[in-house]
């Protein structure tokens, strides 16, 4: 099963590199096609894979630390508040290297607000959390739209920020994302056993020697760093982090020692596939923002989770 998943991933990567506005036959490439493949397709496919892995990993950590099966960067409001920060940074004329820093700061602020609203006496109310996340999304989207009208010139399209897409890709960004992803993956991997204990109630975890508040705060910052960087480069791509941790859990169990890896892998697989579809679905070479596809999949999955977990949701 594990091997097949890796094989599938490699196959999807290769196929994704070859299809698009112009299909490329790797055995008979013209110089132009070779350039398209190496300068555009390959970095883009790798970029979507890394972003997918970042979103999958952050979703896995959010769901566990917030004790909420519906949590991901989008439903917690972290992604939209990070987008808000990125847009403010651009509007204020900050250098582009600082944009992810702004995104991280507002992302953490948004997430903290949602977390504070939903926790009472050590118990996180899952329903309040989702409601607070939705409100966060609405407010952030409103401010983003306002900024777009106010700073007409400097901000790229609203569609980019709210729907997400891989419109600007380069080896530089790809390197930044890969390094950050790898570092944060290792950070979580080293704490996988402790993270597992967060699945228990706070008192049990604490008396087993886990500093719950410290670990949760660290996890929030690290996961939101992934989201902040992903959002500054690709806009809000929702629901990848919602779907893949559940699939990883049902395939390989809930143990975070495996879930971290397979959430990342499945996130990459999902986003590469979604991006491939986004590139070919509109006839004539136009591109769909990839967030539309993930939102469609994610929305249906969200309904499915609500249906199957309804009982437990309302009765704790």
């Amino acid at each position: 099963m594990k091997h097949w998943l890796w094989v599938l991933f490699i196959v999807v990567l290769c196929v994704s590199c070859l299809v698009g506005a112009t299909a490329i036959n790797p055995l008979q490439m013209s110089p132009v096609e070779r350039n398209i493949l190496l300068d555009l397709r390959v970095p883009r496919v790798l970029f979507s894979a890394v972003i997918g892995a970042m979103l999958g990993l952050s979703g896995s950590v959010y769901q566990l630390t917030l004790k909420n099966p519906l949590a991901d960067s989008f439903t917690t409001g972290a992604a939209s508040s990070a987008a808000l920060g990125a847009i403010l940074a651009i509007a204020l004329g900050a250098p582009s290297a600082l944009v992810p820093v702004f995104a991280l700061a507002t992302g953490i602020a948004g997430l903290t607000l949602v977390y504070r609203l939903s926790i009472t006496a050590g118990f996180i109310n899952p329903v309040t959390m989702i409601l607070a996340g939705i409100v966060m999304n609405i407010v952030a989207s409103a401010v983003i739209s306002f900024s777009k009208y106010y700073f007409e010139e400097s901000i790229s399209s609203i569609v980019f920020w709210l729907m997400g897409g891989f419109f600007i890709v380069g080896w530089g960004r790809l390197t930044v994302c890969s390094v950050v992803f790898l570092l944060i993956y290792l950070f979580f991997r080293q704490r996988a056993l402790q993270l597992n204990l967060l699945a228990l109630d706070e008192y049990s975890a604490q008396t087993m020697g886990v500093d719950v508040h410290r670990l949760r705060s660290l996890a929030f910052v690290a996961a939101t760093l992934l989201v902040g960087i992903a959002v500054s480069y690709t806009g809000i791509i929702g629901f990848v982090g919602l779907i893949v941790p559940h699939i990883a859990r049902s395939l390989f169990g809930s143990d975070m020692r495996r879930n971290l890896l397979y959430s990342s892998l499945l996130g990459a697989l999902l986003l590469v596939s979604a991006d491939t579809v986004a590139r070919v679905i509109i006839p004539g070479g136009a591109e769909l923002p990839v967030g539309i596809i993930t939102a469609l999949l994610g929305g249906i999955f969200f309904l499915y989770l609500l249906q199957t977990r309804r009982e437990r949701f309302w009765h704790g």
Partner: peptide, 9 residues
């Protein structure tokens, strides 16, 4: 009250 979220055995 002790709880466990997600399917752990």
């Amino acid at each position: 009250v002790a709880e466990v979220i997600f399917p752990f055995s």
